[in-house]
Design a protein around this nucleic acid. Structure first.
Lengths: 172, 172
DNA sequence: AACAGATGTTTGGCTATTAAAACAAGAGCA
DNA sequence: TGCTCTTGTTTTAATAGCCAAACATCTGTT
């Protein structure tokens, strides 16, 4: 009765998260980030970026120097780190554990990276670390799973894909 | 440059998905579902539910009988099935594999259930089926992982929680 | 000095989602 | 018949995102 409303109570929206990450990537690549650069990086207009970035400045996640060059606050940097870390873990999991194809793994990770909790992100990281560790049981399990799953690629003949539990959703 | 925009191109929004699931649950529990029932079930006003449901009728996911009682179309039913199936798989994974606490597992699952792709959902299902199968390697691996992870609960002393890769995000 | 180009902001419009409040239609009751 | 309650819709207003277009500023060139 209340859980579903949590969706709105996130620390950051998808759009805002990507504005922050754009700044981080631009700073990393070019050493600076302006409104125009962020807009171009995200493929949106300068006007849209300007408004969103204004809100992020008010939230103290983004700061501006005397020449209107954008920087991340400490809080902004931490947020970006956290989201990027979750993204990497998710991509690794989707791709190298589940065997989802790389493009889709990236899209799915991008959609949820800013939504999953700190705890879940951490536990997934721990899981993956153990799974890819030297632990004999982990190695053997992973090999056995990948041998069993036979890479059906979502075909009609795959028993998992035909499972009544997951009725072809994307077709909708 | 384009992946991040996929977030908007989903089959269904979080809100719409929960309107559909509300109808399914009400039909299941009481045998009928009206606008008022959906609104009450979701904790929103009748006006809001009316508008969202109107859009869902236009999209042919919801249909109405002569007395304004709501039903799901075949497409609507399939969508609900798909989302609920993903939710169950996600909760099981978060809770019983990763060891996330039940409340958080439910919240995280709710946030992403409508976002992850069919392929990822299916592959996660296959993974869990294998993980909880009779397969000796799966049982041993799961036991070894759960013994190793020692249930830190996100504390300061846990090496995973202090991992530089996941800098305390929710604090932001 | 004057124009051109780039940059940043603002304004008006659109969609989705919410609430609040007004309104319409029906049902039951006195 | 008249009153009230329930139900559903509509309108107005918010917020968050986006675009397009107008506008203001600054810089560099001629």
């Amino acid at each position: 009765m209340e859980v579903w409303k949590e969706f709105e109570h996130n620390i950051i929206t998808h759009s805002a998260a990507h504005h922050l990450m754009a700044i981080a990537e631009l700073l990393n690549k070019y050493g600076y980030a302006r409104v125009t650069d962020v807009a171009r990086h995200l493929g949106i207009t300068r006007g849209s970026a300007s408004i969103t970035l204004k809100a992020l400045k008010e939230r103290r996640l983004v700061v501006e120097d005397e020449n209107k060059f954008l920087l991340l606050s400490e809080e902004g940097k931490n947020l970006v780190q956290a989201i990027q870390s979750k993204r990497r873990v998710l991509i690794k999991f989707f791709q190298d554990v589940l065997g989802v194809n790389p493009e889709l793994a990236e899209i799915d990770a991008c959609k949820v990276e800013h939504l999953i909790s700190h705890q879940t992100g951490e536990k997934l990281l721990a899981f993956i670390k153990f799974l890819f560790s030297d632990e004999k049981k982990a190695r053997e399990f992973l090999r056995a799973f990948h041998e069993s799953s036979l890479d059906c690629g979502g075909s009609e003949s795959c028993p998992y894909c035909m499972d009544a539990c997951l009725l072809r959703p994307e077709s909708s």
